[in-house]
Every structure is written in C-alpha cells, then in structure tokens.
Design a protein around this nucleic acid. Structure first.
Lengths: 126, 126
DNA sequence: TTAAAAATACGATAAATTTCGTAATCAGCT
DNA sequence: AGCTGATTACGAAATTTATCGTATTTTTAA
C-alpha cells in the first residue's frame, strides 16, 4: 500500500517551489523569497511549514535552533500527480487534449518545439 | 478592464464538467451525474449551484419552477486559465516542461502523437 | 551574566469552502 | 380545494486553509 498522496494547497505549493529550488532552506529563507511577491507575516510562513511537516509534505532537521527544511517529494512526482488530476477534471481524461491546448495557448520557441518532436519520435519507436 | 476571472473551486469544477457536457441541465440532472462517483446530498449540489450563480460562474433560466443552468464560460477558456496557473506554479513558467511531462507520464496512442506532430509542424511554419 | 535579537510553538481568529436540515413555494392530481 | 411530491431558498454548522499575536526558547554579543 503506497503512502497516500497528499495534495498540497496553493500556499504549500509556493513553499515547495522554493524548497525544490534551494534543496534545503530555513523558514526565513523561504519567507524572504515569498515576501518578494507576496504580503504575509513571518509567522504565517512558519506555521504553514510546521503544518506541512505534520502532513509529511516536508522533512526537517531540528537539531539546531534554526530548523532546516526540505521537500519530502520531488517536483516531478508532484507535477505528475497534479497533472493527472487536471487531465481528469478538466480535459476529459485526455492528455493529448491538454498538450494541444498548452501548445496552442502558450508559445514555445522553435527549439523547444524541436525538443518535443524528438521526444514524440522517441515515444513512437517504443 | 476585462471582467475579472473567477477561479472555480474543485466542487464547482465538477459541476461545470457536467454542464459543459450537457450544455444545459437542472440541479437534479447535475446531481444525478455527480452522485455516481460522489457522496453528497441533493441540497449540497443545489447550494453550490446557487453560489455559482451568484459568482457568475453559471447562468440560469428561472422562468419555470425547475431552474435550468448552463456554464457561463467555455471549457476552453477555463482550461486556458488553469493551465496557465499550473505552468506558473509548478513548471517554472515553461509550457514545454509541462508538455514533456504530460507526454512522458500519460501514454498517448500513435494516432494522437501524429496529431500533436501535425500541430507542431503547423506552429513551426508560422 | 544579562539584555537584545531571532527562532519556534501554539492557540485563536478569519476567511473560504462544503455540507446539510428545514421551511417555503409550486405543480400536478384526485 | 386540498394533498403529495419535487423544487428552491436560506441559514447554520462543519471543514479546510490562511493569517497572525503572544509566549517561550535559544543564541549572540556587550
């Protein structure tokens, strides 16, 4: 029985983003990054990270006074889960629909398009 | 100033799915579809749809005793918004990353892959 | 050693979302 | 007209998420 997946809330996702980027960070580290784009008190970030710890979304080292946190799951795993949910709930279960929509709305550079093509060719010969 | 986009909650999204499918539906219609996969009372669905009406997420015809509802925005527009949000919050702003992830995790048929390739070729020659 | 600064813990509140019970309203029968 | 069943309206509770104030602990440095 695989451990039940816990869906992060939006605020939790913001924090995870920082942790994925930094690998490891204190509450203050995270808070300073968030404060650049968001209005929120330090203790709010602290509390959120404590709750994330209780939920098992992050791990932490509390041997020192300042605790250091890191994400408990990889960015890729989270992407996969949330993408799957979105495909189900918004694209009628069709990943192709999602891909087409993404390519249509959000412009990708020719290089990126090449990259995607290579990937598709790869998938086709398997 | 374009009308402000209202982000549907998860429950609201479930209801919108039904409305997009059926074009138009009563509360009971929607509820019967939801009841197949979800445990919830009739008045819960009713209340949600009433709130959605207040928010402007759905339109309704209340000339008859039984009101008939329809989605106020298209599936495509909603997909675009939520996809954009997900790209920002989870894929570092890169739609290509999202596409690659989607293609990697969720298998698409050869026909679908062809379709995506055609779309890419199309994009490249523009 | 003690005061100031910085960090955590914790409880409480606020806000948003979801759920449901009950009352009022309306249509269709008998 | 009066009863029955279905529907809407509405308020309130329950749940989840986000926010913050205050107390406590710990480190640092004067």
């Amino acid at each position: 029985m695989g451990t039940k997946y816990i869906k992060p809330t939006e605020s939790e996702l913001e924090i995870l983003q920082v942790l994925w980027e930094r690998k490891i960070a204190s509450v203050r580290d995270v808070h300073e990054v968030l404060a650049k784009t968001k209005e929120a008190g330090y203790t709010t970030t602290l509390k959120l990270m404590q709750i994330m710890f209780e939920k098992g979304l992050v791990k932490r080292d509390s041997t020192l006074k300042t605790h250091f946190y890191q994400a408990a799951t990889s960015r890729e795993k989270t992407q996969k889960h949330l993408l799957g949910k979105m495909i189900d709930s918004l694209f009628g279960g069709s990943p192709t629909q999602l891909v087409m929509q993404a390519l249509g709305d959000h412009k990708a550079s020719p290089e990126e398009l090449e990259e995607i093509q290579r990937m598709i060719n790869n998938l086709k010969t398997q």
